[in-house]
Design a protein around this nucleic acid. Structure first.
Lengths: 338, 338
DNA sequence: CTGAAAGCGCTTACAG
DNA sequence: CTGAAAGCGCTTACAG
């Protein structure tokens, strides 16, 4: 079944078939009917590859994420897929595990697929990584991460507010020795949150802040992170002159890993130390110590990222937009009282 | 940059370029070199749409899931993407929310995309749903679900063993009144697990089993399920002649929803009732009552599904394989003692 | 408003 | 082992 078949049956040219089916160009009502009837009668299915080849652009968008297994990511991905489908796009998902080589590979793939655009959470803030996409004029929307000076549309958490909310809660409960437990330092959230923490704590005379990094580049999956981060964090904490009384964790997996290590070592939460984090997860309210977190509106962020991309298709040269998503607190028990 | 450019620069025909780059056909070592050099020099990128159009088959596979936000699903999806990439395929994800209309729509999309194959968890066991895919000769691998008589390659949990493990634990702890809390009844896991429960409990004289369904067709997301299932379950349980002492939940979200409702209504677990389920989730060991579950080897299942699909491409007419994944228990506190 | 025809970038018989 | 050429199924100037 091709346009030829439809054209023959409807007694029109393939150009007319194309005009009707693509909704472009003007066609007389009568011919339109005949075409549509033929399409039905033949139960025609379009050939997307042919369309893509001819239009030099597919109706697919690429979603390149660090790890689909992280709750924040899968929830975001779900929203992206949903909104993309509503807008007539299919979505290609790619998982990089924060591995720059894989990221580079996927950028190449996006070009070969001639995707309409990409939604990415780049593992580094070095913009040279995405130069191939820029050269190929592939529209880019970043989420969770951004590049210096916001050259592309971006959708990310208002990290400063989120951090402020967390620290306010912790400070109110009397905490002064903080440990920031983060993953990949080259990415935006770690940087912004650290900056925000420093800014807030600069105004608190007796406050201390220690940064505990966990380089997870190329690491495989949630389970590994769960097992290794907590022990590494405790190990670091032991060696510190002043033991931290509050662990601020960059994501839900880190929260769990730290809670678990603390528990195994006989520490109680929040008695011996508070543990709070970014990203809520189903079940945090059912923990032995329910976990206090700031959450991101992931579904809204996913839908917004697609919306920005679609707007971009219409107006390639409009100035880039930077959308900050509002965080919201989940006050639970893990932040104190001390 | 097209084959024409490469051919011109290398002083060969486009046919030769194709033979070199696709790895098919025999080409003299010298010409091969020249082609490869030209490819490098021009930093050529292939056009996948052109390949697809010509070969009538893309290097993409479709992954159609019920809800990417469910931990089992996102973990499976991650493994699929990973293995697919290793085998040279990109993956198109589609989220159906168990909505048959969306499922049908995506099947059509798969045909239009001329995907190399699909990995699906069909929402119903009615095989007529996938007839379009069959007619279009799109290879199918089902996961989590299957069709009667296993007409396609399938990868799913050994539901009978898994159920047996759960019941054995519960029976050992003295439970006799069981409630099975399930979602969509038309899908495989519910059916198989119920059958297995009945088979086991038939041999236990004083055992009773009540089935509590929660039709989530077309329901939006994890949050909604979390809020509504637990209360509905308690409501049902109240009206039963004999209150169940053990809730066997079909997935991790149902477990959480039931635990949460129980807690809000002043029931203790496992004191007043045991709550166990299928699928482990990071954090279940940190719950106020750590949750006993049978888990599925999701990463292995995802990789296996892709492997089956790739094998199928080579041998379209080989008999269908039915792969049962081995469940493994996570013995924790929520199953008893009573 | 409509159609004939070129062309998007590949692959693959076919002939040599 | 190699190349000329047809063709995959669409879209889009172009001419009318």
């Amino acid at each position: 079944m091709t346009y030829d078949d439809i054209a023959r049956r409807a007694g029109v040219s393939t150009a007319t078939v194309s005009r009707v089916l693509s909704g472009s160009g003007i066609v007389s009502e009568e011919r339109r009917r005949r075409v549509l009837d033929a399409v039905d009668a033949l139960s025609y299915r379009s050939n997307r590859a042919a369309k893509t080849l001819r239009r030099r652009r597919s109706d697919t968008i690429g979603l390149i994420v660090s790890d689909l297994e992280y709750p924040f990511v899968s929830s975001f991905a779900r929203a992206v897929e949903n909104e993309a489908a509503a807008q007539g796009f299919a979505v290609l998902v790619c998982n990089t595990d924060e591995d720059l080589e894989r990221e580079r590979f996927y950028y190449g793939l996006m070009i070969e697929e001639q995707v309409a655009g990409v939604i990415i959470a780049p593992a580094t803030e070095d913009i040279r990584m995405v130069q191939p996409l820029v050269d190929a004029r592939v529209p880019i929307v970043t989420f969770d991460r951004r590049f210096p000076d916001d050259p592309f549309d971006s959708v990310l958490l208002d990290n400063a507010s989120a951090t402020g909310m967390l620290l306010e809660d912790l400070l109110r409960h009397g905490h002064r020795q903080f440990a920031a437990v983060i993953g990949t330092t080259t990415a935006t959230p770690s940087r912004e949150r650290l900056e925000a923490m420093r800014a807030v704590l600069d105004g608190v005379p007796d406050a201390t802040l220690t940064v505990i990094e966990n380089d997870l580049h190329g690491t495989v999956g949630v389970d590994h992170a769960l097992e290794t981060i907590g022990p590494a964090v405790l190990d670091r904490a032991e060696r510190m002159p002043q033991r931290p009384t509050a662990f601020v964790c960059a994501n839900a997996i880190i929260v769990m890993s730290v809670l678990s290590a603390l528990g195994r070592n006989g520490f109680s939460v929040p008695g011996d130390a508070a543990v709070v984090g970014y990203d809520d997860v189903p079940g945090f309210d059912l923990f032995a110590t329910p976990v206090t977190v700031v959450n991101q509106p992931t579904a809204w962020m996913g839908a917004t990222a697609v919306a920005r991309l679609v707007e971009r298709l219409d107006r390639p040269d409009a100035p880039a937009t930077a959308t900050l998503a509002p965080p919201f607190m989940r006050h639970r028990a893990s932040c104190g009282p001390r």
